[in-house]
C-alpha cells in the first residue's frame, strides 16, 4: 500500500505488533476511524485494545450517567464520585482512553445514535454497537449498508458468563496465504459475502445445522422478549423468567424446533446475570479487537458471522448464520 511511512516514534511504539501484522497493516490501522456505542465493560476492553493497536481515531457515543452497574466491569472509570459526577459514560471513558496512546484521536459524540443520519456513519470504517435494542441494531446496520463505501458493522453483548459478537463486512475481499501445489507459499484472493443482521436472524431455525450454538437461540429469545416488552437491553430480572420461558416455547413452536434446543438453565443464567463478568469482557473484547484489526488490515480470515463464548464450557465458537442464497 502506498502512503506515508511510519514515523520513528510509531515504529518504536508498535515494534512488537508490526512483527505480527506488518508495517502495511499498521499504516492502514493508523488511517482507520472507529465508532463505538454503549460503553460497558466489553466495549471498554475493545476500546483499550484498538487504541493500543494505533487506529487513527475512536469516537465514543454513550450519554448515560455512571451507575454502579456501569462501574462494575469498566476499568476506564475511577469509582470516585468527584470525578464522575455530571459526566457521561462516553466522556469518562474518553478521558482514560486518551492516555493509553497519544497518537490516537479519541473523542465523544453526543446524541441518540439511532437518529444520526447516513453522512454521520460515512465518516467511519468500523461501527460497533453494544447494549442496544434489536431495533437499533437493525437500523444502524441498514444505515451502514446504504453508504457507498463499505462500513463494517459489529454488535457485541455480554450477559452472565456468555458473550456474542455479530459481524457484517458486507462484500469483503482479502488476501490469504496458502501453499500451492508445489508447497510454495503464495497468496490467494478470497471474497466473502456477509448477510445483514436482519437477514441473518431471519434465517428459519430449522434450516440451521443441528449443532449451532444454543447460545444463538437463547440470545434471540431474550432479544425478542425485551423487544416485545419495550425494555431496554438488560432490563430484565428473575421475575421475567416464566414469561421468557413461555416466549421460548412459542418461538420454538413457530420455528418448528425442538424446545430442548434452548435449555431453560441457559435462559435462566442470561436473565439473572445482567452484569457482565469481567473475564468474559476481556475475552470477547479481545476477540472483537482482533477481528476489527483483521478487517482493517485485510489480513487473516475474518470470522463469519457470529462468535459465541460461554465460560461454563470454555468454548469460543464461530457460527455462520446466513440465508442459503448468500
Amino acid at each position: 500500500m502506498d502512503g506515508e511511512e511510519l514515523t520513528e516514534q510509531e515504529t518504536a511504539l508498535y515494534d512488537r505488533q508490526i512483527r505480527v501484522w506488518g508495517a502495511d497493516a499498521q499504516r492502514r490501522l493508523s488511517k482507520s476511524h472507529i465508532l463505538v456505542y454503549g460503553m460497558k465493560g466489553t466495549v471498554a476492553e475493545f476500546c483499550k485494545n484498538i487504541v493500543l493497536a494505533g487506529v487513527g481515531s475512536l469516537t465514543l457515543v454513550d450519554d448515560r450517567a455512571v451507575t454502579e452497574d456501569a462501574l462494575s466491569s469498566n476499568f476506564l472509570i475511577p469509582p470516585n464520585e468527584n470525578v464522575y459526577a455530571g459526566k457521561t459514560l462516553a466522556e469518562l471513558c474518553c478521558n482514560s482512553l486518551k492516555e493509553f496512546n497519544p497518537m490516537v484521536r479519541v473523542s465523544v459524540e453526543k446524541g441518540d445514535l439511532s437518529r444520526f443520519g447516513g453522512d454521520f456513519f460515512d465518516k467511519f470504517d468500523i461501527v460497533i454497537v453494544s447494549c442496544c435494542t434489536r431495533m437499533t441494531k437493525k437500523l444502524i446496520n441498514e444505515k451502514c449498508r446504504k453508504l457507498s463505501k463499505r462500513v463494517a458493522f459489529y454488535t457485541v453483548d455480554c450477559r452472565d458468563y456468555c458473550g456474542e459478537i455479530f459481524v457484517d463486512l458486507q462484500k469483503y475481499i482479502y488476501t490469504k496465504k496458502k501453499l500451492d501445489e508445489n508447497n510454495q507459499p503464495t497468496t490467494v484472493e478470497c471474497e466473502l459475502q456477509y448477510p445483514s443482521f436482519q437477514e441473518s436472524i431471519s434465517v428459519p431455525w430449522r434450516k440451521l445445522p443441528r449443532r449451532v450454538s444454543k447460545l444463538y437461540f437463547a440470545m434471540r429469545v431474550i432479544e425478542s422478549f425485551e423487544e416485545a416488552e419495550g425494555r431496554n437491553p438488560g432490563e430484565i430480572s428473575m421475575e421475567d423468567l416464566p414469561a421468557v420461558l413461555k416466549l421460548k416455547k412459542e418461538l420454538c413452536e413457530a420455528q418448528s424446533m425442538n424446545e430442548s434446543h434452548i435449555p431453560n438453565a441457559l435462559l435462566e443464567r442470561l436473565v439473572m446475570g445482567k452484569r457482565e463478568f469481567p473475564p468474559v469482557c476481556a475475552i470477547i473484547g479481545g476477540i472483537l479487537g482482533q477481528e476489527v484489526i483483521k478487517a482493517i488490515s485485510g489480513k487473516g480470515d475474518p470470522l463469519q458471522n457470529f462468535f459465541f463464548f460461554d465460560a461454563m464450557d470454555g468454548k469460543g465458537v464461530i457460527e455462520d448464520i446466513s440465508p442459503p442464497n448468500v
Binding site: D15, R16, Q17, R19, V20, W21, E45, K48, N49, L52, A53, P278, P279, V280, C281, A282, I283, G285, G286, I287, G289, Q290, I293, A311, G314
Partner: peptide
C-alpha cells in the same frame, strides 16, 4: 527481530488469555 529473538506480541491475545486465566 531475529537477533533479539523478539516475540510477536499484541494486546488482544494477552487480554483473551488473561480472561481465561481468571476463569
Amino acid at each position: 527481530g531475529i537477533a533479539g529473538n523478539i516475540v510477536h506480541a499484541v494486546a488482544t491475545t494477552n487480554a483473551v488469555v488473561a480472561g481465561l486465566i481468571v476463569i
